[in-house]
Amino acid sequence: MPDPSAVAVHADLREESLELERLVGRLSEADWARPTPAPGWTVAHQIAHLHWTDRAALLSLTDTPGFARLTETALAAPDAFVDEGAQEGAALPPGELLERWRTTRTALDAALAAASPDTRFPWFGPPMKAASMASARLMETWAHGQDVADALGVRRTPTARLRHVARIGVRARDYAFAVRGLPAPAAEFRVELRSPDGAELWSYGPEDAAQQVTGPALDFCLLVTQRAHRSDVAVRATGPDADRWLDIAQAFAGPAGPGRAPGDAR
């Protein structure tokens, strides 16, 4: 019997991707060429990057040798492969790029549903189970979707799907310190986030933790995906370690990014 939590995240990934597809599906060629907050990346680059990474996830689940070859190519140009993959896709006509992304997503959805729930699949970082891979794909889809929305001047309605993004952000606390060569705090933090509809409190960590983080879930997700500067969100820290974390938090793997500048619109 499928794991209910895995089924839920797979469905949420599907809906997150469809929401972004609806946003870009009727854009003109000029709109596809609009610059986004990521330097040098247009709307087309954002969708091309998601297509590239979804394809990588599909290879991980269904073609281990193929994923190994992709990893070798990436390692041969570690500072360039992300931009090169986005540039290759962005050069396609928008309709063709959109169709390729849709086809890959459909295949990935089927592969995630068919994957053994206990198997760990290779990735650019530690191997992941299918449910974790779906969560990671949702986080990245939402984050790059935010870049697209910002480029188009669209304010998206936040949903309960942000729970997956928030959870990754909390679990990536120690990574955010490590990637900057800093020792991770020894004690757990308490994180309390108000759900987008205001009806729930999403909580993580012991209630009596000395270090605490509180605020709206949307603002926390924008912060940990580095789609908003800390000064522009209503996320608050209690304790010096928690305060330091909010300066460096990131939910994504890879080197520390520069993040958004203060005052960037969202």
Rank of each mutant, 00 (worst) to 15 (best):
M1L: 09
D3L: 10
D3V: 14
D3T: 13
V9E: 04
L13C: 08
E16M: 09
S17D: 10
G25E: 11
L27Y: 07
S28I: 08
S28D: 09
D31A: 15
W32N: 13
A33G: 08
P39V: 02
V43G: 10
Q46K: 02
H49C: 08
H49E: 06
D54E: 14
R55K: 07
A56T: 11
L58E: 03
L61A: 05
D63F: 00
T64P: 01
F67S: 02
L70Q: 13
A74H: 04
L75C: 02
P78A: 03
F81L: 01
V82N: 12
D83L: 03
G89M: 02
P93Q: 04
R102A: 13
A113F: 05
S116R: 15
D118K: 02
D118E: 15
W123R: 14
M128A: 14
K129T: 15
S132P: 00
M133N: 12
S135F: 04
T141A: 13
H144K: 09
G145R: 11
D147C: 12
D150R: 15
L152W: 13
R155L: 07
R156M: 07
R156E: 13
P158A: 09
P158R: 09
T159D: 09
A160I: 05
L162A: 06
R163C: 01
V165S: 06
I168W: 00
V170N: 04
A176H: 03
A176C: 05
P183A: 06
F189T: 07
E192R: 15
E192T: 15
E192S: 12
R194P: 00
R194Y: 01
S195V: 03
P196T: 13
G198K: 11
A199N: 07
A199P: 00
E200Q: 15
Y204P: 00
E207Q: 10
D208S: 13
A209Y: 03
Q211I: 01
Q212V: 07
Q212E: 08
G215T: 06
D219K: 09
T238G: 01
D247E: 13
A249T: 11
D264P: 00
